[in-house]
């Protein structure tokens, strides 16, 4: 419980200036940061509360048909925004498969992208963690690592990114709008998170003080709305992080796949875009064989980082299933259990 300053800027430019000061951390809903502070994992000396900056909580349709999601739009508000959910159904499905209703009501668009890994060795301050303390080592490597990464990991870090939301965003070529002291810039979501390499403590491309102000999806992304699903396999039906998840979207014409979008969650320290699989699907006829091939391509580079080889085979199956579901067409209504292989929630008393 270190002492810290708290400032509440009233504009993005004020926030960016304040956030650039050493030791500062942006606070939005705090659904992750406050837990990290209580556990002594994050120790900012100053919280810059961006939660009340006006103008960041809008969902806007852009002239070209895309959508711009303000950084402070709550996860629940976005998922239940009818027009958004109709055009980007797998994003809504991913959002509703994450966390709990209470957390979704609070958590923000920008904050979701910046949530930290759930690796237990990151949270346990008595364990060695290169992400928490660069150079300390990684106790997960020879530890309890059934949930850890099978793609893109390094000896320095085998953690995964826990976000559901980021997975369909990666698949759909979302763009992150960032504001810093030097002005505004844009980064594709697939480039926003970094793989661990030798510097797992550097998790995103954000420079100190840079603030996510919005996330954009293009009209092109909405063209996948008819065949888009998010599938999340987890150890309980709700309120659990993905063991493996997949966002799969297809554009199908005349019985052929015109274009495919595919990304995985729970397998790497970033949402994992599977471009080789997408390329193989383009032009193929949708079906078991092409989906299997895509799945194999997506996992071609995978290797276990510990006691987690099962995740590689599981990921292949999740991809094949997600593509099958997508090919069958996006359901009219979001399923009662979003992202779940158990589509219907069942009634309490039938």
């Amino acid at each position: 419980m270190n002492r810290f300053d708290y400032v509440r800027p009233s504009s993005v430019s004020e926030a960016v200036a304040a956030g650039a000061e050493p030791g500062s951390a942006f606070l939005a809903a705090g659904t992750n940061l406050l837990d990290l502070m209580k556990g002594g994992i994050a120790r900012p000396t100053r919280l810059v509360d961006v939660g009340r900056i006006p103008g960041l909580d809008a969902i806007e349709t852009l002239p070209d048909g895309g959508v711009r999601i303000g950084a402070l739009v709550r996860n629940a508000d976005l998922a239940y925004h009818q027009e958004f959910a109709r055009r980007f159904p797998m994003v809504a499905e991913a959002l509703l498969s994450g966390a709990s209703a209470q957390l979704r009501n609070a958590a923000t668009t920008g904050g979701n992208l910046l949530q930290r890994t759930r690796c237990p060795y990151f949270y346990d301050t008595a364990s060695a963690c290169n992400k928490r303390e660069p150079g300390a080592g990684c106790d997960a490597l020879a530890g309890e690592n059934r949930q850890h990464a099978v793609l893109g990991w390094s000896e320095a870090c085998i953690a995964t990114n826990p976000s559901d939301f980021a997975v369909p965003l990666a698949a759909l070529d979302a763009v992150v709008e960032i504001e810093g002291r030097g002005g505004r810039r844009e980064v594709p979501l697939t480039d926003f998170h970094r793989l661990p390499g030798d510097t797992p403590q550097i998790e995103t491309v954000l420079a100190p003080g840079e603030l996510i102000v919005a996330v954009r999806l293009s009209a092109d992304a909405a063209a996948f709305a008819g065949h888009a699903r998010y599938l999340k396999v987890r150890e309980r039906t709700s309120y659990a992080f993905a063991v493996v998840s997949a966002a799969a979207a297809l554009r199908i014409a005349d019985g052929r796949i015109e274009a495919a979008r595919l990304a995985l969650g729970g397998v790497a320290l970033k949402p994992w875009r599977a471009r080789e699989a997408e390329a193989a699907l383009a032009g193929a006829s949708p079906g078991f064989e092409s989906f299997q091939e895509a799945a194999a391509l997506a996992l071609a580079e995978a290797r276990p980082s510990g006691d987690n080889a099962y995740k590689i085979e599981l990921a292949r199956r999740v991809i094949a299933r997600a593509l099958t579901l997508a090919a069958a067409g996006t359901p009219e209504r979001l399923p009662a259990l979003p992202g779940s292989p158990f589509a219907s929630g069942g009634s309490l008393h039938d």
Binding site: P120, S127, A142, E144, R236, L337
Partner: peptide, 24 residues
Amino acid sequence: VVDRRSGRVMNANLGEYHVPVNAD
């Protein structure tokens, strides 16, 4: 989930120590 080396419980919280949620 016990770390064999340290003996510490690595999921000592109700987020990761799973009990059924209503949907289960």
